Every structure is written in structure tokens, then in C-alpha cells.
Simulated assay, not measured.
Amino acid sequence: MNVPAGSGFEYRHNAEHYEAQSRLGHLMAYYAWTLDLFGDTFEGPAADAGAGSGHFSALLARHVQPLLLLEGGEDNLATLRERFAGDDAVTVEDSDLTDCEAQLRRHGIRSIFTLDVLEHLPDDVAALKQFHAALPSSGKLYIKVPALQWLYGPVDEASGHYRRYTRASLRRSVEAGGFHVDSCRYMNLAGVPPYFIKSRILKRAENFSRTFSMAQIRRIQKAIPMLRRLDRLVGPPLGLSVVCVATKA
């Protein structure tokens, strides 16, 4: 999907992405796994930059407050406002991540979380520089993105991805944004083969989450504890995602 530079989250306006976000809501154990890889303590105020339908945000809100949710798609904004209505610790705002420094500063944000967002932006470093400029010294950035450029195929194109990352390429982008990288690791080794089959062999031209039935999603949910143990045992040397924690020096 071609997203013009500076257009922020226009990729989130399409109904297909909205449906995919709803499906992913059934994988809360996956979000919990991601949060555990980020750490166990987080400093607020925090922002979820590219909050989507708010599945990860709902989990994050239990661990850090106050929480600012930035989103740019009208469907998702409506969902977020309904989901967090009455929660004074959560604020929902329309945003363009390539021009969000003042917005983040206004809320005194000290921690920024952004999951599966940077790959949708033509210029990921531009957004990272906005985050860096907004955070105070020692402010934290928490990132998850899809991994391994050799997996890139029709699934990524249908999902609006400009790229997939390696640990090295994500590190380069984060450092180009001005951050010091604390940790950068792969996540979900077991997810690589099915993604390769669906995107590179079967060439399924649809959002990855839509290639699974609800029965398959429920089975994945149950398998996540085993997948987490596998990652701990093997490293892992590669994975379906890259998870990064960085600090503003």
C-alpha cells in the first residue's frame, strides 16, 4: 500500500486493516509475551503510538499510567474512544506520527510503545526522530516490528508493509533516530515457516491475520506458552518479529 510521505496513519483507514485488528484481539497472550520482552517496569506518562483497536493498549494500561493512545484511522479512533470511555487514565488522540513531537511533549510522555507500525511508514526514521525529540533524557522507546526481509511477499504488500526488519536494520533505524539501543532480539521462531509458506510459496495476497481461521487463532493462543519456551531455549537466532528497547541518552 502506497502511503504518501507525511501522511502518518492513512494505511489504517481501510476496512481490511480494521478487520485484521479485530482478529488479533483474540491473541492477547501474544501481546502479553511482547510486553514481557519489553521488561517488567515502565515509567509513565506513556504513549501507545499507533494503538490500532487498542488490544495491546488495554494490556499496557494495567502496567503504566497515564496512557496516551495515538491513532490516525477513523474506525480505530472510534473503537478506542468507545473502549476506553470513562477511563480517566487513558487519553485517545488523532495523530500523525511524522509530526507528533508537540503532542507527545504536551502530555509529558516518558515512555513510547509502538507495535507493528514502523513498517507501514515510508520514512520510519522520521517518526523515530519525532519520538526522540519529544522524550526527555533517559526516556524509553519500546518497538516491535515484523522481521526478516526475505519473508517479504504478497502478505506484506496486502498488509501495507514497506519493509520487514532484521536486528541490524532495526538497530540502524533506531540509532539514526538518535536513540541508544539497549536490547534488540528476535521473537517467535516458530512463526517463520508458516509465514514463509503463506507469503512466499502460496503467495496469499491478504493480511496475515486473515489467512487464519478463528479455530486456528484459538489453537495459536493455546500454543503460545510452548512457543515462548522454544524461544527461550534456542535464543532465538531469528523470528517472525524483532523486539527492541532503546533509550534517549
Rank of each mutant, 00 (worst) to 15 (best):
V234I: 09
I224G: 00
L24A: 03
A15S: 10
L148Q: 13
M1L: 03
K140M: 15
Q103N: 11
P136A: 08
D231R: 00
V181E: 04
V3F: 02
L37V: 12
R81Y: 01
V242M: 06
M226R: 10
S183N: 10
K248W: 10
K248M: 08
K248P: 10
A61M: 03
V245T: 15
S111P: 09
R83K: 15
P237G: 07
N2D: 09
R172L: 02
G86P: 13
V92N: 05
A51Q: 05
R200W: 09
F212I: 01
R229I: 12
L240E: 14
G235S: 08
P122R: 03
T79C: 06
D96Y: 04
F9Q: 05
A20G: 13
Y30R: 14
H63G: 02
A158G: 14
V192G: 05
T91W: 02
L69Q: 05
G52P: 07
T98A: 10
S199T: 15
L227H: 06
G235A: 04
I109K: 01
R23D: 08
L97K: 02
A147G: 15
V155W: 12
K248L: 10
M214A: 13
L68M: 08
K222Q: 12
N207A: 14
S22H: 08
R81Q: 11
D231L: 05
D156S: 11
T247S: 15
S199E: 13
A168T: 02
D87A: 07
G160Y: 07
S95C: 14
T211Y: 07
R81T: 04
S53L: 05
W33R: 11
I217L: 15
G44W: 00
A147K: 13
L37H: 14
Y31T: 10
T79I: 14
R167H: 03
L230W: 11
E206M: 15
E206R: 15
A134R: 01
S95V: 00
L104A: 04
Y30N: 11
D40C: 08
K222I: 06
L202Y: 06
A158R: 09
F56I: 04
F131W: 09
V192E: 05
V245M: 10
P136T: 12
A47D: 07
V64A: 07
A85G: 13
K129S: 07
Q65T: 13
H17G: 15
A133G: 09
D124N: 06
G25T: 04
Q130G: 11
A102Y: 04
V90Y: 06
L67W: 02
F196H: 06
L121M: 06
G50R: 00
L37D: 14
V242Q: 04
D48N: 01
E175L: 04
Q221P: 03
L67Y: 01
R164N: 11
I197N: 08
N188K: 12
H161A: 11
L128V: 08
D124M: 06
M187D: 12
A89K: 14
C184G: 02
S95N: 01
V245A: 12
G160W: 08
S241P: 03
R171N: 09
R164G: 08
S111N: 04
A158E: 13
N76C: 11
G52S: 06
R163N: 09
